[in-house]
Design a protein around this nucleic acid. Structure first.
Lengths: 338, 338
DNA sequence: TTTATTTACTTAACCGATTAAGTAACACGG
DNA sequence: CCGTGTTACTTAATCGGTTAAGTAAATAAA
């Protein structure tokens, strides 16, 4: 059975392809009766329009791209959920690309978007993405782009973020209230804006409480789990931290593992706070105090803003800057101030 | 700046579009010198071919679809990871669709694929998908389809699964060895093949150990977390299970929650095994004994098989039936047989 | 009654790349 | 010197919708 095309419908009904096309798009130029006949035959033959023919002509694909570092992270998984919910509602298709934190891959992916493959892009940049992000800067000029969570500060574009500095400040203050005096912040990147904002909040909290910032206060971890584990264990042994803030989900579990290996108790020896959306955080041993980011909402908001721009080209997309607050959920990996 | 097309390259070089096209695809019909000139200009003007023009003409999109119930589940997240790794290597694009366990949504999504939007489909069906899956049966006749994990048994197609019956049997046997005599299996669906296979393994293990199968042995949970929680708590109070097997990740955490609410200790009052790929399983309170599925490998295998079919139409895709074993990882939510 | 307008179509160009078929120029074997 | 190949292109059709422009007939306005 051949694929059913608009031409086949036209021949069967003795009409032109133009009439069929217009009937299917419910054009006012077509009589009600003809529309019914077209619709009936289309249903009967199970006609499904070829999206590529349409995209080619209309220069719009009804497709968006989501570019993220990884998917096996509850933040990104939930964000995709939020994005997809909006896309499905609007009848858009979602292409997904994983960069695995590689700037090179990210650039290659973005370059492809210059082809018109997608109408818009939602992106959370890699830990390696920096000011030399030429592909990004270029892309933003060509199609609507929305950054979510991990933005590239050098590029002017819509941004959906959370209050990273604040969240880190509050987390740090909570540790201090719980008695910590020698804290470490585990960071995933020196370049990433959210990492830097979180570090800012951390530093500010230390300063506000007259605590010193040392070379050991901020630990930059790599994307390699084994190396990170090594780094963590060494650092824990040398510096005797009494509190740690893990700024990514993977780092949070890495801390649990390191403490287990070194037989350090949480929160007895080290108090721990993780930036994480793990639904299992409350069931961890001990239950993990988290900075919980509004992942679904951020994805939803990012997609919503993007679709506004796709609908109306006059929508001032680049000015959209939403900050959705994170919340500190206190559990048993930290001591409440007494 | 306009989009650069093949025609623009042709005009600048005083060649026909055909020559450009062939030069770019490294055709033997084109002289080495011309190829170099074309490539150089293409690079200079940052030419990126329009994928839709190409797809329309070639009737292939270099795009595959992944249809799954949800993404915020470590099994599916890891499976996507496996799929994407293969797709990226092959230069394919990945469209993602979430069904949220709705059969209606699934059918609508699959119908769209009749348009030629994608060259192949990787799917894990919903808990509602049953024998009346007409869209699926239809689709399999038209384009390459690979089921992974959740297959539709009524439809003949390639399948990448894990040894569900075996895994459930072993899990059950482990509980029995740990002293359980009144076990419950939490199932996500009456129709889903993997659920039924797991139930089969559970029943077989009971039979082999002369333990009775009652109406309470298998609990069918819905997709609604609140309802599931209610069901679980009621069942736990009424039936005094000494062992539970949660056949999905969400159900595993639901059990932890229910036990917490009812002040039941794990594994003292109830021993628990979860089908899950949670990286945090080992850090849960208590650490969770899991049936760990090879999620990444299954995704990788499914994509690999699909691409073989896409490369060679003579590849006997429908005969591909891989079973990748799951493993039982024993932790502290169960008692080792003593 | 004549002109203007509306209705319901059709014709044909178009989106941008691919490819079957055609051609001119040149080489080569007999 | 002729026929056959080979090389390196070009021409034009094609994929399947979309849409600007055109048209014939019916209806309304003048």
């Amino acid at each position: 059975m051949e694929n059913v095309t608009i031409r086949m419908l036209a021949e069967r009904l003795q009409l032109s392809t133009a009439t069929i096309s217009k009937a299917l798009s419910n054009s006012h130029e077509i009589s009600e009766e003809t529309k019914q006949r077209v619709l009936a035959l289309a249903a009967e033959l199970n006609y499904v329009p070829n999206p590529y023919a349409s995209s080619l002509r209309k220069k719009s694909s009804h497709t968006i791209a989501v570019v993220i570092p990884e998917v096996a992270d509850s933040f990104f998984a939930e964000a995709i959920n939020g994005i997809e919910s909006v896309a499905q509602e609007k009848g858009y298709h979602v292409l997904i690309y994983l960069t695995h934190e590689s700037f090179g891959k990210e650039e290659a992916i973005l370059k492809d978007f210059q082809s018109g493959r997608v109408d818009g892009v939602l992106i959370s940049v890699t830990t390696e993405t920096s000011s030399k992000a030429h592909g990004l800067a270029q892309l933003v000029k060509e199609i609507p782009v929305v950054f979510f969570d991990r933005v590239c500060e050098e590029v002017t574009a819509a941004r959906i973020t959370t209050d990273d500095a604040n969240a880190a400040y509050n987390a740090t203050a909570h540790l201090i209230a719980g008695g910590c005096r020698n804290m470490g912040l585990l960071s995933a990147s020196r370049q990433l804006s959210i990492s830097n904002r979180r570090a800012d909040g951390f530093r500010q909290a230390l300063a506000d409480h007259q605590l010193p910032l040392t070379d050991n206060s901020i630990l930059y971890c790599s994307n390699d789990p084994a190396a990170t584990q090594q780094l963590l264990q060494t650092a824990l042994q040398q510096n005797h931290y009494d509190g740690l803030i893990a700024t990514t989900e993977k780092l949070a579990t890495a801390v649990y593992q390191a403490c287990e290996e070194l037989s350090l108790t949480i929160p007895g020896d080290v108090q721990v706070i993780g930036f994480s959306n793990l639904s299992t955080a409350r069931f961890l041993q001990p239950s993990l105090t988290t900075v919980s980011q509004p992942a679904f909402d951020m994805g939803h908001a990012a997609a919503t803003v993007l679709f506004k721009a796709l609908k109306s080209s006059s929508f001032p997309l680049q000015e959209q800057q939403q900050v959705i607050p994170s919340s500190l959920i206190i559990r048993n990996s930290t001591k409440s101030g007494l």
